[in-house]
Simulated assay, not measured.
Amino acid sequence: MSQAQQRPALEAIGISAGYGGRAVLENISLTLGEGEIVTLVGHNGAGKSTLMRVLFGLHRPDAGRIRVFGQELPNHSPAALGAAGLALVPEGRGVFPDLTVDEIFGLALWAAAVPKQERAERIEEVLTLLPRIRDFRTRRAGTLSGGQQQMVSIARALLTRPRALLLDEPSIGLAPKLFQDLLAPIAALRDSRGIAILLVEQNVREAFAISDRVLAMKSGAIIEEGPPSAFSDHARLMELF
């Protein structure tokens, strides 16, 4: 689908944010279209994770507006955003180490108010997308490898059947092949369900392979955007940072 044909899944308009009076984001605007995969790149400290937190209602912006599927929500909280079809896979995975995978899934389904009669079907959906989880779903998350924990974190987000997904640095601590294995089902979701994906990622080669657009961020501002081919020259990419 071309960008011109896409309805916005997520829009940020003039977002500024910071911590304790220190500005981190300055007048950022971006659009993520339905069925589009956009990768956000930038140096450490550019503000990428802060932007993702603002978009998902985990940090209140100092200025700006956010629309989700054309609506400005009166309560821009994670719960309200989840109900509107947005999900976040946070940096660092954020799994509960003392809970089993099945318990984490049950908690996610309960928090999303998914009816009990639908829960088994939801779990089977994510296990079909990420079948390796079947091998360790009864284990406590704290005993899993980094790659297994990342699968659980992604699966937990997908249990809500989101229409837009925010992924913050999913490759951290993962071997390149495992990261490829995680990206493949995510890209397949875009193709089969039209899920929009905003991906913050340092492993640009793998991320660009599934992306429609790239946004480059520096010092709290988006400084350039274009197709992945425009950023394929490594030297050119490094110039931006």
Rank of each mutant, 00 (worst) to 15 (best):
S2M: 11
A4D: 11
A4V: 15
R7W: 05
A9R: 04
E11F: 02
I15G: 01
Y19T: 03
G20M: 14
A23K: 15
V24P: 05
L25R: 13
E26Q: 10
I28T: 05
I28G: 02
L30P: 06
T31M: 08
L32A: 04
G33F: 04
E34N: 10
G35Y: 11
T39Y: 03
L40M: 13
G42W: 11
H43E: 15
H43I: 10
G45A: 04
A46Y: 01
S49I: 04
S49R: 00
P61R: 00
A63G: 09
G64W: 02
G70W: 06
E72F: 06
E72C: 04
H76C: 03
A79W: 00
A84R: 06
G85P: 02
L86S: 04
V89N: 04
E91Y: 13
R93H: 03
V95I: 14
I104T: 15
F105S: 00
L109T: 00
W110D: 14
P115I: 01
P115N: 03
Q117P: 02
Q117E: 13
R119M: 11
R122Q: 09
I123W: 02
L130K: 05
R132F: 09
I133P: 04
I133R: 01
F136L: 00
R137E: 12
R139E: 04
R140W: 11
A141V: 06
G142D: 03
T143G: 08
L144A: 08
Q148D: 07
Q150E: 09
I154E: 00
I154H: 02
I154N: 00
A155M: 10
A155T: 06
R161M: 07
R161T: 10
R163D: 05
L167A: 05
L174V: 06
A175E: 09
A175C: 10
L183R: 09
P185D: 12
I186S: 01
A188T: 12
L189F: 03
L189W: 07
S192A: 15
R193W: 02
G194A: 03
L198W: 01
L198D: 00
E201M: 13
I210K: 08
I210F: 13
I210L: 11
D212E: 15
D212T: 12
V214G: 05
V214Y: 03
S219R: 15
I222W: 01
I223D: 06
E224N: 11
E225R: 14
A230C: 06
A230P: 01
S232Y: 08
H234S: 09
M238L: 13
L240Y: 15
